[in-house]
Structures are given as C-alpha cells and as structure tokens.
C-alpha cells in the first residue's frame, strides 16, 4: 500500500491567470522587464491543461530567481546556479510533474554553467527560462557572462576584457532538444514561445531578453523600440524563408564562402533565401551566429527535435528492472548470495 497521498486533482480547465498570482508583494524594481515575463507566464500556465498543484518552479539566485515567490505553484528559491540540478531530482523522481526552472545569465551561465549544459544534454524534461539582461543586477551592477566585451561596469571600470557567451549557441552545443529566444516586452511572441516550450517533451531552453532598467537600461532597445525593431528582428518560422525589415524586404542568404549575408529580397530572389528548419542542427547553429549589429537578431524557435527525455528513460529502466526482479523485496536481496547457517 502506497504511503503517497491519493489525491483528486483540481480541474485544470477552470484555471485563469489570477490563480497563479500570489499574495506576496512583488519586489522587483519598478520598470524591470521581469514584470512582463511574470505576466506572460501567468497567462500561459492556465492554457496548458495541467492542474496547478502539478507545477513546480525552481530558481537559483539573482533577480529573476525571486520568480517562484510570485507564482502560486509549488516552488523553490534555491542556491546560486543549482536550479537545473534540483529540478532534475524533482522530475526524475516524479515524471508526472511539470517542472520549470527560472534563471538568469549569471545564475545559468556563470556559476551554474555546468548544470545547465549537462541538464540539456540529458534532455531532462524541464522548461528552462533564462532571463538575459547582460548584467548582474542583484549584486548591483557587475558584468555578466553575456555582457559585451569592453563594457564598463562597477567591476570593470576600464571595460570588461571577458568575451561573452552566445547562450543560444551554447545550448545548441550542449545538445538541447528545444532552443528558443524571445523578448520580455513582446508578450504575444513570448506567450507563444512559452507554449511551444511547455508542449516540448524534453529540455526546453528559452532565452528571454530582459531589460534591467537600473544597471543596463536599454540593452535591447534596438529590438524593442517600435522605430527600430522591424529592421533588427528576424522572426524564425519553421519552413519559411528568413525575411525581415519593412515588408520583409530583406533576407538572409549564404554567400559563396558559406557565410551569412543580408540581401535585398526583390533583387536577390526569395527562392535563394535560407529556409528555417528547426530540425536541422547545422542550420540552427548557423542562425544562432547571426548577431547584432551586423545581422538582425533571430527570435523564435532555433531548434526543436524529438529525443527521449532522461526522466522517461530512467522510469522505463526502473519499470523494466522491477518486472524482472525476484519477489521478496529487500529481504530477498539480504537473504541472497553466498550464505551459511550457524546453529
């Protein structure tokens, strides 16, 4: 007889955004991009058809990691960088739960870099939301592993000499089965991206550009200002040619040295543009190397491929072994092997 609670799950279809808000005062700085992301998540969760009690949000340390306090699910605000490992334990023990990791560029890529890459390669079925503001906010303004080289911060008054990570390339290199990018203030695109991530079976890594209006204000203005957005955003759509700019006038193509180039679609011809393919590894990586300001910034799903998840493989292995094990439980194991009797 199981000691685990027999529960009747709540009706997921009745959930709304308010059901995911907590009674805690949200303590991010006024104007922080985190508010928009929180709202988008609260909007996306009720749409997933999952009972609220089956959600778990795990975070590390940093501004983004306060997220669980503001979300009415099971949650853990853990220690710096370790959220993917903690979430791996939760998901591995209880594959039926929907486990989310909320992390930042410092938490995920600096102190927790090792856990992130290994979680991705294992394909643990976790939804990993990485808020990238290219700065350390909670410790008050030091450069992060995604800060651009030369950036002047409190800990780099002469300019940072660190070369930054490209988080999307990193995730792809770590064998992530789902890799996407969205932007804090683009609630529609962010919501769609979260839904895709939630529906993906396996590790889903979502980089969310997030403005820190205190220590790195305007880092993504080129991508969020109405005036410039159209020239700098490349929406990735599976099976569609890579076009951007007003009226989709510009596109991405390969030059004769297999390097990307921005072309004028009308003169170059749409049929010679690259077609986005979420299942093409080489292309996903290629697209991740399109970096501002020489290229438009790709947003959307870079890669989405099917691969059995770690937790389901583990469960299958245990189930298979259980079916084969001799009856008698641990006592049989104790009694087994070479024994002798003293009378």
């Amino acid at each position: 007889m199981s000691i685990y609670p027999k529960v009747t799950h709540t009706d997921a279809s009745k959930l709304g955004r308010k059901d995911f808000q907590t009674d805690q005062d949200v303590r991010w700085c006024p104007g922080c991009g985190d508010y928009a992301i929180l709202a988008a998540v609260h909007k996306a969760l009720p749409e997933l058809g999952i009972p609220r009690e089956n959600f778990v949000f795990v975070s590390g340390i940093g501004c983004s990691s306060r997220f669980p306090y503001y979300t009415q699910t099971f949650g853990m605000h853990s220690i710096h960088g370790r959220a993917p490992a903690i979430a791996t334990g939760i998901k591995t023990l209880r594959p039926e739960l929907s486990v989310w990791v909320v992390t930042g560029d410092g938490d995920a890529l600096s102190i927790g870099g090792n856990h992130l890459i290994h979680t991705l390669r294992r394909n643990v079925d976790l939804k990993i939301l990485m808020f990238n503001n290219r700065i350390y906010g909670l410790t008050k303004g030091q450069y992060s592993p995604t800060s651009e080289q030369g950036k002047k911060t409190k800990s780099s008054p002469l300019g940072s000499v660190d070369y930054p990570f490209n988080p999307i390339s990193l995730a792809l290199g770590a064998e992530a089965s789902f890799v996407a990018r969205s932007v804090d203030v683009d609630s529609k695109h962010l919501g769609e991206t979260l839904s895709r991530a939630a529906a993906h079976k396996g590790s889903a890594f979502v980089e969310i550009y997030q403005n820190c209006n205190i220590f790195n204000d305007g880092a993504f203005d080129y991508l969020t200002d109405r005036a410039t957005k159209i020239d700098h955003e490349l929406r990735l759509e599976h099976g569609k040619p890579m076009r951007f700019g007003p009226g989709g006038a510009k596109g991405i193509a390969l030059d004769t040295r297999m390097q990307p180039m921005v072309v004028d679609v009308a003169t170059f011809g749409e049929d010679r543009l690259l077609i986005h393919d979420e299942t093409n590894d080489a292309l996903s990586f290629f697209v991740s190397r399109l970096v501002h300001p020489n290229f438009p910034t790709p947003v959307g799903v870079f890669r989405a491929v099917e691969r059995p998840s770690f937790d389901e493989l583990m469960q299958a292995q245990v189930d298979k072994a259980k079916a084969k094990v001799k009856p008698g439980g641990v006592q049989a194991l104790l009694d087994g092997g070479e024994t002798w009797t003293v009378t």
Partner: peptide
C-alpha cells in the same frame, strides 16, 4: 509534496 492540491507553497534558502 508537489502534486497535493491546495498545498502550493514556496520554500527557499
């Protein structure tokens, strides 16, 4: 433990 209706709560360091 997670999965128990009505017990949603947050813990942390």
């Amino acid at each position: 433990i997670p999965g128990t209706p009505g017990l949603e709560h947050r813990v942390g360091g």
